[in-house]
Design a binder for these strands. Sequence first.
DNA 1: TAGATTGTTAATCGATTAACAATC
DNA 2: TAGATTGTTAATCGATTAACAATC
Lengths: 221, 221
Amino acid sequence: MDKNENNGKIKFIPEPTLRRLPVYYQYLKKLHNEKRIEFISATQIGNDLNIIPIQVKKDIAITEITGKPKLGYNVRELIKRIEDFLGWNNVTDAFLVGVGNLGSALLSYNGFKEYGLNIIAGFDDDESKVGKEIGKKMVFHVNKLPDMIQRMGIKIGILTVPAPYAQEIADIMVKAGIRAIWNFTHVKLNVPKNVIIQHENLAASLVVLSKKLEILLKSDE
Amino acid sequence: MDKNENNGKIKFIPEPTLRRLPVYYQYLKKLHNEKRIEFISATQIGNDLNIIPIQVKKDIAITEITGKPKLGYNVRELIKRIEDFLGWNNVTDAFLVGVGNLGSALLSYNGFKEYGLNIIAGFDDDESKVGKEIGKKMVFHVNKLPDMIQRMGIKIGILTVPAPYAQEIADIMVKAGIRAIWNFTHVKLNVPKNVIIQHENLAASLVVLSKKLEILLKSDE
DNA sequence: TAGATTGTTAATCGATTAACAATC
DNA sequence: TAGATTGTTAATCGATTAACAATC
């Protein structure tokens, strides 16, 4: 039986924990490469990342690793556990639609593979882009999209098209079999309930940043 | 006295509410432009955005708008209230450092102005980029950065450089007077306590997406 | 008037934080 | 042994959700 299942049912994980795990992972990787430390305590991780140690402990506990009192966790093992837990050992393929600046940035970024995502191709309706390679990924004409999704059984679509095309492309994706859309547009997509939308909303982040800055600058006075 | 203050102290706003406000805003804008509806109820907003109406009501209440029982809120006024509340009427200037694909995408995107952010220039150390314009924004050599931050009193820096330069540039920014950094790298930045970091962590989003997809696909079986 | 919706107070739920025995 | 740290249960805190009187 798989580690994070009980009778085939996946244990529920709080989203905040899920979001912190990659942060620990990046930290641990760096630690392992640069310092070759064998053990690390939750206290130490917490200090370095400005997260309270109890929370680090709770988050780590989810991987079901066993630590050593007084010493902490084996770094190598902890890295492995997080990889296993997040399913980063088997990479999932994805298509990206909309090869503008942002789309190109995501296509060229090779780091996603480390996080279990392999963007295997880009799609665009601009003939001047079709046939080219960006970050070693081929760009196809968007009219090939449905067929290729179906044939290759792709489940994840990345949406970086201009806003007016977002819903249209999402519809095509869903119809062809995509089950999760990483949405970088600011369009609220309508999709069936059995499709996941992960909306990367920069406006939302910006609002949080601005409000914090407002409070900060006010406190300077 | 300003609307969101009490004796000069800014009311605390839950971050989730802060992140939902721009979503309502985008929805309302579209509604107003396309359908010219005068009143909208929390129920209706909730239905359209898949958020439960009570939450919409609570979020909206923070703008201190007064709605009309049976009718709802005046769309025009609600839009205005959200703009006021989020400080979107006076735009804040920002510099962007790292004019690669991602940096170019952000520079070219004109939508941030609507959310109170004006990226006025880009910086890079690549001479082939310096002096050019991207999205009507000049690209300067990064060695001009500290001076220009200081002279223009810029408070927000956007960081889109390759990982190895992230901390170095952040240090320069902070030393010159930047008080908030929008961090698009996957580097955990060390900055003084009186500087805000907003970390756009795509790995974290990706993890959430993958886990949800995993659960979804499992439930198909 | 009847009914939908607001505004506000109370209940619930879930994540964070605290406490503490067990352990190396 | 003494002390730091784990693992786990309990307490706290804050956001979400429910309930309901007031109102148009």
